[in-house]
Computed example of a mutant assay.
Amino acid sequence: MTTTKHDTIDYFKHKADKYDLVEEQAYWQLSDRLLWNVFKKQVLERLPKGFTFFDAGGGTGRWSFKVLQEFPDSRGYTYDLSEDMLRQARLKRESNGLQDRWSIKQGDLHAIEGVQPASVDVCFNFHNVLGFVDEPLKVLEEIVTLLRPEGYLVSFTPNLYHALYFNISLGRIEEARKLTKGKGRFTLEMPDIHMFTPNQLQRYYDKCGLRVQSLKGFPAFIYPGFLETQIEGNTQTLSEILLDPLTFEQILEIESIFLDKEELAPRGNNIFIVGQK
């Protein structure tokens, strides 16, 4: 079944008001820490002072807001198809007085409007953004046009191999079989989305004329349970492990030690890739 723009808009319409509750889930706190640490070290800290970013499919602006907070000279765009998600981003912008630094635009990533070509230092898309679009490669090619020379494109995508494991572990064999063709889902309420492998993303970046600087998968040794796909809720076993602050930090340290092992990329829940123009 083909996922349409309407399916995507409708899916997020019912999640927008509660979407940021994901930050209260112990597993995603761990995943976010890993993602922020590697994104900051390998990309953001290498950018010129006063850099400009483009958050593709940025939704409620969770990551845009974090970048703007941590780098007070930065400016950026949050661009998304869902007006309901962007409404939450605008609330963040207004309540934090960021109107002069934060542009929020509704639109289709296949044909980006309102942003000048070669005007952005870093473009990023996190979590399921590339999964929901019709043509992931076309979207990446469109985003690349926004980058200045030497600019960075960063993607954090769903991992096909983990999606297969996840569905099989829940006994959803037909969902797993469907994934063998490259599209599927984590929950029965979501539309089918594209899933990716490390090699596939490497090929996409090559076709976009980007030099791949980093390719990794994480978290690699602890996976989300079913409740972690529901925005609200914590799987009991994961909670017992991760809600202990000391254990949380120890697992974070173990995951961090192996982040640079490219051979572990297929094992990660998500795939992280950085390319430079």
Rank of each mutant, 00 (worst) to 15 (best):
P224F: 10
I251N: 00
E189M: 04
F221V: 13
S239L: 09
T247K: 11
F221E: 07
G233L: 04
T235R: 00
N199T: 13
K183A: 06
E249R: 14
L201W: 00
T237W: 10
F196C: 00
R185T: 08
F226P: 14
Y205M: 08
T197A: 11
L227P: 02
E240F: 11
Q213I: 11
L246N: 09
C208P: 07
L210Q: 06
F226V: 15
Q250V: 12
T180M: 12
E249C: 04
K216M: 14
E228R: 05
T180F: 07
A220C: 09
D192Q: 10
I241S: 00
T237H: 12
E189H: 03
E240D: 15
Y204M: 10
Y223N: 07
Y204V: 05
R203L: 10
S239N: 14
L227C: 02
P224S: 04
I231F: 12
I193M: 06
Y223D: 05
F221Q: 05
F186R: 03
L188V: 15
L243V: 11
Q230Y: 07
L215D: 09
F196R: 00
N234W: 03
F221L: 08
G233C: 05
P191M: 03
S214E: 13
T229P: 00
L201K: 00
N234R: 07
L188S: 15
P224T: 06
S239F: 12
P224H: 05
Y204W: 04
E240C: 08
G233V: 12
R203E: 11
T197H: 05
D192R: 12
K207F: 02
T187S: 13
I193G: 08
T237V: 13
Q230P: 09
E240I: 10
M195I: 01
G217W: 12
R211T: 13
Q202N: 08
Q202V: 06
M195F: 08
N199D: 12
P224Y: 07
Q236C: 06
L227K: 15
L242Q: 02
C208H: 08
N234Y: 05
D244I: 06
T237D: 07
I231T: 15
T229A: 12
L201S: 03
L215A: 03
P198N: 06
F248N: 10
P219Y: 14
Q250H: 09
E228V: 11
F226I: 15
C208N: 01
K181W: 06
G217M: 12
K207W: 01
H194N: 07
K183E: 14
H194A: 00
P224N: 07
Y205W: 12
Q236K: 15
L227N: 09
G225E: 10
I231C: 00
N234F: 02
Q213M: 13
